[in-house]
Design a protein around this nucleic acid. Structure first.
Lengths: 110, 110
DNA sequence: CTCATGTGCAACCTCCAGGTTGCATATTAA
DNA sequence: TTAATATGCAACCTGGAGGTTGCACATGAG
């Protein structure tokens, strides 16, 4: 099973979406399960509402969050599938690593 | 189990280190288990050796890779512990998410 | 109806990530 | 010793990420 270039590229943008402190804090908040409005997500963070909006859009492009409108509010929630994708990718890398070490060990012990 | 601000910040820089296509490709190569030189890591990638060096340094700051000198070569290898850290962080988020949904389900079913 | 609230859009600013080139310096191979 | 190889250091460039402000526009509350 090879990790294709497309796969790598997609994963990179996913990790990039997680690789910003503000965004990661948003993810943590959203991991509570609820769908939160932009205004409520902005609360407590040292960034403008517009800034938060941009971050949410970045995450949306990475497939990390979805949003739907309810009245005048824009509600955002996590899409856990992408989170799972990220975990799987890391699992894959770790597995290759472990396998390589196992092979090395067998080789040395012969 | 708190996800302190420091924890979040550290994790963010870790994900950021993974969140660049070139760097992720380096990680994939290094997951083979060996310690590779800068020159060999550069091979096949559309980036200068200097560019690769910078990427390696970024990853080193994130704790993702280590390097040691052997003669005129600078050998780099993965530090799998940080990879594990990243997985654990994602597990944590997923768990909070699952728990939240479970609570919601119980609540609805009552 | 009127106001306060929640967003969207667009222009703008600044800094640094990601990349390059040029040159100096260690090491190793012949 | 001489060349070729592998890096390091430093200066430099450029686009876009991350942030802001100002204003217009829906929509919900009274």
């Amino acid at each position: 099973m090879r990790s294709s270039a497309a796969q790598t590229s997609r994963s990179a943008s996913l990790f990039a979406a997680l690789g910003d402190e503000t965004r990661l804090r948003l993810v943590v908040r959203l991991s509570g399960g609820g769908a939160l409005s932009i205004a409520s997500l902005t609360e407590g963070l040292p960034v403008t509402r517009q800034g938060i909006t941009k971050h949410l859009q970045v995450m949306e492009h990475a497939g990390l969050v979805r949003n739907h409108r309810r009245g005048r509010e824009s509600l955002w929630q996590l899409d856990q599938r992408r989170l799972t994708d990220a975990r799987k990718y890391l699992d894959l890398i770790s597995k290759q690593w472990d396998d390589a070490l196992a092979r090395l060990k067998r080789f040395v012990e012969e």
